[in-house]
Design a protein around this nucleic acid. Structure first.
Lengths: 106, 106
DNA sequence: CTCCGTTGCTACAATTATCGTAGCAACACG
DNA sequence: CGTGTTGCTACGATAATTGTAGCAACGGAG
C-alpha cells in the first residue's frame, strides 16, 4: 500500500533534488508574483511594491534577497530590480501559466 | 483561519486578472509540491503526506481543499487524491521547471 | 550650501499561516 | 469483536507575513 514516493526535504534543506528547492523557493509568498511583475522590464523597489498591490516591504525585500541569492534577480547599478538571464529563462518556463489562467477563469 | 477562496477576493489581485489569482493560489505553501507529487499517480492523503516530507496535515488539507475548489484536484470515489484533467493540464505547464531546476542546481 | 524627493532597506508590534502532535468517525477485513 | 485503513480536524507552539513608520545615502534643483 505504501506508495513509496519521493521523500525529499523542502524547507531549509539542500538534500539534492533541485526541483524541491525550486518549488520551495517559488512557493513562498509573492515570489512568483515578483518574477511575474519583473517579466517585462526592471522596476524600482517602490514600483515593484506598487505593482504587487502594496505588499509589505518586509516580505518583498526578503523575497528579493532570496531571488537574488538564487541568481534570478539582480539590482542594477543604476538602481531598480531586474531579471537576470537565468531569471528570464525561469520566467519563460512558467509563462504558459498566463494562457492557462485565462482559460481557467472559473 | 481565513479562507481566501479563489472566487472573488484573492490576495494580491482584485483586478480580475486570473493570472494573479493563480499565482496567489500556487504561491501558498506546499501547493506546488502537492501538484508535483500527484503528477504521476493519485495518492492517499497519508501517502501524499509522506511524499511531502511529513508536512503537517493541517496545511495539506487546506491546500487540498483549495486545489479541489479550484478544480485541479479531486478525491476519487475509491479514496485517494488525484489530478483532474484541468489539474493535469496545469501540471504540464510548469513541468519544464524540472528541467530548468536540473540546470540550475543552486 | 540647503532643501526636496528619490533610492534601497530596516524596526517593530500585530496579525496570519504553518507546524507538530494527537485524535476523531467511518469504513473494510478477518 | 479487534486491527488497520481512509479523510479530516483540534489545538497550542512556532514561524512567516502584514502594516506602519522611519532610516541613511544619493541626486538634482534652487
Amino acid at each position: 500500500m505504501a506508495r513509496q514516493a519521493i521523500s525529499g526535504n523542502v524547507r531549509g534543506s539542500r538534500t539534492g533534488r533541485p526541483i524541491m528547492a525550486l518549488l520551495d523557493l517559488l512557493g513562498r509568498r509573492w515570489a512568483l508574483r515578483v518574477l511575474w511583475e519583473l517579466r517585462a522590464a526592471p522596476l524600482t523597489s517602490r514600483a515593484l511594491r506598487t505593482a504587487c498591490d502594496e505588499a509589505s516591504p518586509t516580505v518583498l525585500q526578503a523575497r528579493l534577497s532570496e531571488l537574488r541569492e538564487a541568481g534570478f534577480v539582480e539590482l542594477g547599478d543604476g538602481g531598480g530590480y531586474g531579471l537576470t538571464a537565468l531569471g528570464r529563462e525561469l520566467c519563460e518556463t512558467f509563462m504558459p501559466l498566463h494562457r492557462f489562467a485565462e482559460r481557467w477563469k472559473r
